[in-house]
């Protein structure tokens, strides 16, 4: 037994030694290949770093976009919702939308607000069509103690939980501060739709991918305003560059006491609000 055992030991050692060497050699070979490919992608990044990205006349390192919403100005006309859909080709029904407006109404003797949005059945009935948006006037004869409108959309967080959960790297935050979705890489698992604390994402059944507000990335990279800001008739929506000291968004943030929605999530939104209320989140 003892002899057998002693005879066995060198055999095992040999095996382990050889196997270890083989593993190290293999890992080094693979590592070298990996290092090579990493070097290649770094090189292509360096090539592009000198030029403007993502377009020839727009350099994303020079901008830091932010959005302001003055809820005290909003009249609930829903032109933003309609414009967003035209601009971004969102399905023209009441249930797919990148931005929306919530109406909060406190009635006499009630502690909780009644909240509705354009997709409420009564509002769809008032507009007469799922592709037209308006608030009905259901509270005109009610005893209203307080009422207001709050525009909502993607908050383009600095620590976005949607990006955190994406299993395929299909959603990301750009250098200029916008969270985007790569529609070709998205596998439609909807983890991000679940992860967003603001309910800003929706599932697009036509493309089988997640979808959401991009702050009209194709517009802001051309020097235009997002469509919702462009059409807002009462300047309740403000957009601009934090890197530009004289921008309207800097003025908005400096001159008002601004809030973000659900700060406790740690998502650090870059949508800043004026005129929120205890129940708005």
């Amino acid at each position: 037994m003892t002899q057998d055992a002693s005879k066995d030991k060198p055999g095992r050692r040999d095996f382990l030694r050889t196997a270890g060497k083989a593993l190290v050699a293999g890992a080094m070979g693979g590592g070298a290949l990996l290092a090579e490919s990493a070097a290649q992608s770094e090189k292509s990044a360096a090539d592009k770093a000198g030029a403007s990205f993502p377009t020839d006349d727009y350099d994303w390192t020079e901008h830091r976009w932010a959005y302001g919403i003055d809820a005290t100005r909003c009249i609930g006309c829903l032109r933003c919702v309609e414009a967003c859909k035209s601009e971004n080709g969102v399905q023209p029904d009441a249930h797919h939308f990148r931005t929306w407006v919530e109406r909060y109404v406190y009635l006499e003797g009630e502690e909780k607000a009644r909240v509705d949005s354009h997709n409420d059945p009564q509002n769809i009935a008032a507009s007469g069509s799922e592709s037209e948006y308006r608030f009905d006037n259901r509270y005109k004869d009610a005893e209203v103690t307080k009422a207001f409108f709050v525009p909502k959309m993607c908050n383009q967080c600095q620590h976005p939980s949607c990006v955190q959960v994406c299993p395929v790297g299909a959603t990301f935050r750009t250098e200029d501060g916008v969270v985007l979705i790569d529609q070709t890489y998205c596998i439609g698992c909807e983890y991000c739709v679940q992860a967003c604390p603001y309910g800003a994402r929706y599932f697009n059944e036509e493309t089988r991918t997640s979808d959401k507000c991009t702050w009209c990335y194709h517009r802001i990279t051309k020097g235009l305003l997002p469509a919702c800001v462009e059409v807002c008739p009462v300047e309740a929506r403000i957009f601009g560059d934090l890197n530009d000291p004289s921008s309207t968004i800097n003025e908005f943030i400096h001159e008002n006491r601004v809030h973000v929605l659900k700060p406790e999530t740690g998502n650090a939104p870059t949508c800043f609000y004026v005129g929120l209320d205890k129940e708005v989140s």
């Binding site: 592009k48 990205f53 993502p54 035209s86 990301f172 750009t174 517009r219």
Partner: peptide
């Protein structure tokens, strides 16, 4: 993430 996705998303035509 895919860097080209940013180029693609920035390429759309403005409607307004």
């Amino acid at each position: 993430y895919r860097g080209d996705a940013v180029i693609e998303l920035a390429a759309g035509d403005p409607q307004f």
